[in-house]
Amino acid sequence: MKRTMLFALACAIGLAQAQAADTAAGKSLYASNCAQCHGPTAKGMASFPALAGKDADYLQSRLETYRAGEKVGANSSLMIPNARNLSDDDIANLSAFLSNNAQ
């Protein structure tokens, strides 16, 4: 019982953290690190895909995959070094900003 309550508390804290993702920080990070390839409104350019409006879980998963150095798609060699130094908060903030249409 005690263990269940602790687990529920941990989940609640995790949820609160996710909800508290700082979209302003994500916007700032996007502008400085991502916009030159994915475009100022994240609608994609050239061979770089659109990100605006994508599901936050999907974006977070992809960034974590790149951060781990795993290849996904033809532009992995550009994404892996870009994601390497992102913190968990950075990824959460970026994902939240982009999933909110990046406006």
């Binding site: 061979s47 033809a74 532009n75 992995s76 060699s77 550009l78």
Partner: peptide
């Protein structure tokens, strides 16, 4: 390859 999609 980097940028390795079709059409490259």
């Amino acid at each position: 390859h980097p940028f390795g999609d079709s059409g490259a």
